[in-house]
Structure formats: structure tokens, C-alpha cells
């Protein structure tokens, strides 16, 4: 197996962190592990269940390890064509008891389309969300462009590594608040562990509310994905 031609990909997340660490006063960093299970219900309809939690690891210029919240997520996905799907999702965020935030119910509607001219697969995803808390309902609109490809050939075989990169723009609107614009950039490295499981880790950089009160948020991500 050859992997000598890919050292650049392995170093990208680290270069990214060094770049970010240079001058971020408003920087918050989290570690967010997740576990997801996917399975087909019919030939065109499938379920996704996931559990994820978010932990503060850097806030107010201090290193720490404190749980922020726990998310339980479900998506019902319907394949429209071989490369297109729609999905409806429900998320419940348990935050009360972990920090001083409130719990949240989130409803998501999603449309996704992919294309794969050669080795790289491109994906475009549109989402609308209703984030419901006891204080307000926030409507969020998201667009994400993704690309993913195997790192050791043209096919992702068992035991091989892959790369997933995402760029996403978000607009949040709520009664009594000014619109909030966010942007996210995510780089992930993953491995196909078996026919049904993948493990990936990566970093995500978010600039939040960049038109009013700019915040920089850095995520260290790890995920185990089971697809039955």
C-alpha cells in the first residue's frame, strides 16, 4: 500500500491550527466526539441516529475540559435520485445542567446533491432549520459545499484513508434580533475500518456573527460512523 505521496494532507489540519492560534482573542475551542448509526428502512428510505457532545477545551484564554451540551439527533432520509436526497431531522440539545444555556429542539429540512466526475466527489447541501428554545425560535438557512476523496487510490477500500472538506455559510434570523452571519470551514481525515464503519477526526473553524460581534470558534472533531 502506498501512502508516501500524501504527507501534505496529513499536515493540513496542523497548519490550520497554527494559523488560527496566531491572534485570536475571542477564540473558543471545543472537542466534539460523535457516534452515528445509519441503516436502510426501505430501498430508498434510511435513518440516521447520532449522539454527540461538545466539550469546552479553551475559553477565556484558559485550557479546560468541561461539558457544554449533549445532542441526540435523528434524520429521516429519502433518496430522490441516485445522487439526490431530501432529509428531515430532529435534534434535542441537553444543555441545562451542563452550563448556563438552555435546552433546544431543532427541526431540520435538507436537500443534497452530489456529483463525481472522476475521483473527487462534490456535494452541495441546503438546509433550513428551526431552533426552538424557551426564549425564542431562530430560523437558520445554511448552504454547504463538500468534497471527499480516497487518499490511497481511486476507490476507498477497507483499511484506507479518506479526506472530507466542507465550506458552509449560515444565516440566522429571529424576532427582535439582527441577522447573524456565520461561516465554517471543516477538514477531516478518516479511515474506512470495515465494510460498515468509518472513523474520522478533524478540525472545524467557525467565524460567528461576523457582521456584528465577531467570534472565532475552533472545533476538534472525532466521529465513529456505522453504516449498516
Amino acid at each position: 500500500m502506498c501512502c508516501s505521496s500524501r504527507p501534505l494532507w496529513l499536515s493540513l489540519p496542523f497548519l490550520f491550527i497554527v494559523f488560527l492560534g496566531r491572534s485570536q482573542e475571542n477564540l473558543t475551542a471545543y472537542w466534539q466526539p460523535s457516534l452515528a448509526i445509519n441503516y436502510g428502512v426501505t430501498e430508498t428510505y434510511s435513518h440516521n441516529f447520532s449522539l454527540q457532545n461538545r466539550n469546552y477545551i479553551f475559553e477565556e484564554e484558559e485550557l479546560q475540559l468541561n461539558v457544554r451540551h449533549l445532542d441526540l439527533v435523528h434524520f429521516s432520509n429519502l433518496q430522490l435520485q441516485d445522487n439526490q436526497s431530501i432529509a428531515f431531522g430532529v435534534l434535542y440539545r441537553f444543555r441545562e445542567g451542563f452550563d448556563d444555556g438552555t435546552n433546544e429542539l431543532r427541526l431540520t429540512q435538507q436537500y443534497n446533491i452530489t456529483s463525481k466526475p472522476f475521483v473527487v466527489r462534490y456535494g452541495q447541501r441546503w438546509r433550513t432549520e428551526q431552533r426552538i428554545t424557551s426564549a425564542r425560535t431562530t430560523h437558520r438557512f445554511r448552504y454547504r459545499f463538500s468534497l471527499d476523496f480516497p487518499l490511497q487510490g481511486e476507490k476507498l477500500d477497507v483499511g484506507e484513508a479518506y479526506f472530507v472538506g466542507n465550506a458552509e455559510s449560515l444565516l440566522s434570523i429571529a424576532n427582535g434580533s439582527l441577522p447573524q452571519y456565520d461561516a465554517r470551514l471543516t477538514l477531516n481525515l478518516g479511515w474506512r475500518l470495515s465494510d460498515t464503519s468509518k472513523f474520522q477526526f478533524g478540525v472545524e473553524y467557525r467565524t460567528e456573527d461576523f457582521s456584528q460581534d465577531l467570534q472565532h470558534v475552533l472545533f476538534f472533531l472525532s466521529a465513529l460512523n456505522v453504516s449498516l
Binding site: 500500500m1 502506498c2 487510490g153 477500500d157 483499511g159 475500518l193 464503519s197
Partner: peptide, 22 residues
């Protein structure tokens, strides 16, 4: 993960990139 990955590599069809000299 590394333990599982090394088990997984056996008995599988595998395609990967190589150097010209290989």
C-alpha cells in the same frame, strides 16, 4: 481503530496508488 483497521485489510479487494518504479 488501528487494531480494527489492520484486521480489516485482510481478504479484501484493494486498489491503491503506487510509484512508477513499482
Amino acid at each position: 481503530f488501528f487494531c480494527v483497521a489492520s484486521f480489516g485489510q485482510k481478504k479484501q479487494e484493494q486498489e491503491f496508488r503506487i510509484d512508477k518504479k513499482e
